[in-house]
Design a protein around this nucleic acid. Structure first.
Lengths: 193, 193
DNA sequence: GCCTAACCGGACCTGCGGGTCCGCTTACTG
DNA sequence: CAGTAAGCGGACCCGCAGGTCCGGTTAGGC
């Protein structure tokens, strides 16, 4: 009922002032990095990403000075999707339904992206830049007003619960989206009065 | 109302057929390992443990052929406490209360022991050896009979939810036991009808 | 088509953790 | 108290990942 899930084109954000082959390679690296980070989280390795992209690892370092820079670029790309999805949720009329659908969609993405799982609870800067806390608190407050959420529920609670089951499901290599959705609703259930 | 929390004496299980100094050192290593694994989980490093124990790392390898063996020994030690605590819970009359107290106690221990958090969801063999599933399911069934737990709740659910918030709280370096207890009750709340 | 600067990647460096070796030390036995 | 095997730890080896360098290659302006 909402949201193209993954942004269709993973843009490499390659600066246009470079040679065409360099830009092409940066794109390849970025795409490979999105995949590898999704599969292995921050454990992903630069040689691995380079191999997947079909380039030498020096080429990776030419576009991204350090592994952390590449990880950040990929993380921002994925977080951008999340921010959009949350904004969409905030526009829906019924807060509880919005929250439920949001958690289900997010869970589905998390089930396919280990990096997102690992990065989410630490993405303070991103949260500030995109006013995530504001959005979340608005949703929560609305749900509380209609009595579907306990009064002491916080944005942090959602972060912890969702981030939590995600980590375990990934550790256990559970891929079935139905399971992920189940824990999404259970977590929401945890915050009922 | 129950359970000395951590077993008072961390026994090194040093085989008695060795020289006295060797046994003493094994004990030191084991004690140090308990501490370091608690602080850093499986990221703990053999040199680190050796340093903490005040011995060379070769001494560590003399008692435990590989890092994994040491980790397993420590994990078993901590899991033994857990098994006992769960048995105690199973003996209590009111299932829901037993479950709640159990989760609180366990959370408190988890908040101080990263190894336990990391190892818990994978401790299949230990579960079988100590019939943990049996115990848990007994508790769950009792609570379901008295209507305090939703009928489709499973032992797996508890593992996932508890293991989940534990991982996040550790990642966020939250030490306050009150927080941990809060998420314990929230998780239980998630499994209410 | 030529020339040059940008680019490429294989080879290399460094640091670190798991694991082993060996010459010195020390606990126990007679 | 002497002899000896068990024990000790510093030095060493290996593999691996992050990161750099440089000689060869190629895009793209003229």
């Amino acid at each position: 009922m909402s949201s193209e899930l993954p942004p269709e084109e993973p843009p490499a954000a390659g600066r246009p002032d470079r040679r065409a082959d360099a830009r092409r390679n940066q794109e390849r690296v970025f795409t490979a990095a999105v995949e590898v980070f999704a599969e292995r989280g921050l454990e992903a390795t630069v040689p691995e990403i380079a191999a997947r992209a079909g380039v030498g690892k020096a080429t990776v370092y030419r576009s991204y000075p350090a592994k952390a820079d590449l990880a950040e670029a990929v993380a921002r790309h994925r977080l951008a999707w999340l921010a959009e999805r949350m904004a969409a949720a905030a526009r829906q009329p019924d807060a509880f339904t919005a929250l439920r659908d949001l958690l289900c969609d997010v869970s589905e993405q998390l089930s396919k992206d280990r990096l997102l799982v690992e990065v989410l609870p630490r993405a303070r800067r991103w949260e500030e830049e995109n006013d995530i806390s504001g959005l979340t608190e608005k949703l929560i407050a609305a749900a509380q007003r209609q009595g579907t959420l306990r009064p002491d529920a916080t944005a942090q609670d959602i972060r912890v619960l969702v981030g939590g089951y995600s980590r375990v499901l990934i550790a256990l290599d559970v891929r079935d989206p139905a399971q992920w959705r189940r824990y999404a609703t259970l977590s929401l259930n945890a915050l009922r009065p």
